[in-house]
Amino acid sequence: MTARSVRVASFSLRYSPRAFITSTLLGALLVVLTGYALTVGKFTIPVGQVLSMLTGTPGPQGVDYVFWTVRMPRVLTAVLVGVLFGVAGDIVQSLSRNPLGSPDVLGFGGGAATGAILQILVLGGGSVAIAFSALVGAFATAFLVYAIAYRRGVVSYRLVLAGIGIAALLAAVNRYLLISADVTDAYRAAVWLTGSLLDRTWNHVTIATVAAGVLLPFAFALSTRLRLLEMGDDTSASLGVTPERTRTALFVVAVGLTGAAVASAGPIAFVALAAPHIARRLVNAAGPSLAASGLVGAILLLGADLACQQVFPTGDLPAGVATGALGGLYLAVVLGTRWRKASR
């Protein structure tokens, strides 16, 4: 990877031209996709009208309502949640040093889901209460996983395996909760469990925006250290990084990102897993590339939601189903390419 640097006085910023160009292209693609998503749906809103409504000119009565209270929150939630998942996935994948280590595999998603299901089935709160419970669930689970994996420091494999154990336990609990409820509540909870962008409101957008505003700066500030951590604890320590403290800080950031994403759209499968893979391949980087991962995450989630909308226009299929199925396909593709490389 060729890297260049910009120097201004005593500051210097190192960047890779390829990562920069790729991120710019991904950003452009995301803008186009967002625009497309705003125009299509139960009925089409022409591009010109979308632009004029965005600039403040009110559209016709019904169109205005659909645009600002149905479509906009949904599209914005998709984009923001995708970014959160993508960045969180990249961090966790780098921390766990494993291409399959993602927040959902490590049980944060399951923990968030347990919190939310309890809220839906037992306490019966509204969407904000559900989001809050999910956040609490994610943090409680992450704390538990980290505490279990901690023995004079956290080693990646212990983190991964402790996460998988707890995730399996939570999955059983979640399913038990589903069978002890009546069918309507259970269906509502199960849709939430799969992750859905239906009926998103501005509340969901707010949760995701706040999380992105608070946590993404930390994530980007720590990204250089994350890259150094990949060299191993000894090497990174000699380069001035305190491995344990940095890892804990990154872990907290990743859990916060995941928790907020799950709180606003449910534990959508595989976005956090697939986005960093695709981003790293596009950027051609060995290590984490947070910006590209976030953009790819947004494109994936928005694309999956659009696909669900277009393929099943009548049924309200949750986006999590599409990302789950696509994730499975993607795994098979990764497998295929690696297989070819290994046999070569």
Binding site: L100, V105, I164, T194, A269, L273, G315, A325, G328, L331
Partner: peptide
Amino acid sequence: LVLAGTAVGAALVACAEGIVFL
């Protein structure tokens, strides 16, 4: 191996839920 099992399992659960939600 364990991660691969978990990931494939998660994909299958998602597909299964896709079928039953319809």
